[in-house]
Design a protein around this nucleic acid. Structure first.
Lengths: 217, 217
DNA sequence: TAGATTGTTAATCGATTAACAATC
DNA sequence: TAGATTGTTAATCGATTAACAATC
């Protein structure tokens, strides 16, 4: 029974990475946990804990080495490995994601797109061709694809997920507005656009409510 | 000093809502906390607490009234109010979001799009016209726009946010890959696509690691 | 009625934060 | 050196879960 490892969330690590990548003047070689904490809006102790958890040591008075931290976070998050991926659903959102230039820098290589629309099959989005669904299994197997991105309408998302899983992917990133179900060995991340919307609307409402209360006091 | 209200997260509420909307046979009028919990992968006690927190009472033996729950969640999350919105950045992602049909059902009314590309100005995405940035302030003010969606490249996101705030929006939903800063009275939700990617890659890596450990035992 | 399911209090758990000695 | 900042233990906090009497 090991002591519980306090695994830092991938989200926080990726926020640190962004900060290190963008918000630092090239003249400075180190950052303090406090500097990071100020921007990410998090406690400096938590930053130090996260860093320690991924074996990054800082230097008292100086802080953490920026280059070293960037490298280590990339490593931990898997950005340095090539992740062979296909995208199913070459609509607007799918095309937008396929064209997202940053993905490549994070190791995400989208090898092929798939769609059911015969008019789209054989055409290109950037350098990637759109294939018929009947090719999915072959391509996933022969190209050793490990991840599938789903950007189809909600009512076909589960069927697409099933096909991807049957063909052997171990990860699914789903942008369709429905909960998909997969075997336990497949990692699924569901992006709930409407949950994001709910969150912002709710927080606006809470804020208005608080302001009313303050006036009432 | 009130007792702490255990505010349910908007994300959970929106997941409940989806479940109620989609996963229930029209023949049944109620659901138990257990049924919801099974699908959402959450403890049934937590579901009951969340329901209680938004003043939904269930009936022992029966559970919660589905119609009543849907209505109440919509109310709490603000889906029943019209949220007047503009979208800045009519690229692929922006157009995809503007065309997303479900948003309307959640109260999100995108009134106008904006872009800097002169070739796009005056053209339409669905029924919405694309305007020049110089029109932003006028339209936000005259149409009482409360929210802005940002889908521009990272390097111009802050400037767009500043313009939206200056024009009077109280909420910003930002899809650009950068952290934007706003006054405290503005609610911001930052969608970090790369954080989502980091999360799924990280979980795949953790899972592989666990499997190796199991074999080693 | 019997028993399934709620509503709520108390217990647990883990994540975050405070505190502070160690150290460059 | 003096003092800023780390690394880590202990304290706090809040969210989740367990337990169970109330109730339809």
């Amino acid at each position: 029974m090991n002591a519980k490892i306090n695994r830092p969330t991938a989200e926080r690590l990726s926020l640190y990475y962004h900060y290190l990548k963008e918000h630092i003047s090239p003249a400075e070689a180190t950052v303090s946990s406090q500097q990071i904490a100020d921007i990410i809006k998090v406690d400096p102790t938590l930053v130090r804990k996260d860093m320690a958890a991924i074996s990054l040591r800082g230097r008292p008075r100086a802080g953490f080495d920026i280059e070293q931290a960037k490298t280590r976070i990339r490593e931990v998050l898997g950005f340095n490995t090539v992740h062979r991926t296909v995208l199913v659903g070459a609509g607007r959102l799918g095309s937008a994601l396929a064209a997202y230039p940053e993905f490549r820098d994070y190791g995400l290589h989208i090898l092929a797109l798939f769609d059911t629309n015969p008019a789209k099959i054989g055409t290109f989005v950037g350098a990637r061709m759109i294939y018929a669904m009947s090719e999915l299994s072959n391509i996933v197997r022969s190209q050793n694809v490990e991840m599938g991105i789903i950007t189809v309408p909600a009512d076909t998302a589960q069927s697409v997920a099933d096909q991807l899983v049957a063909a052997g992917v171990t990860g699914i990133w789903c942008f369709s507005a429905t909960q998909i179900h997969t075997p336990a060995n497949v990692v699924v991340r569901q992006e709930h656009l409407s949950a994001g919307l709910a969150d912002i609307l709710y927080r606006q409402a809470v804020k208005r409510h608080e302001q009313v209360e303050q006036v009432a006091e």
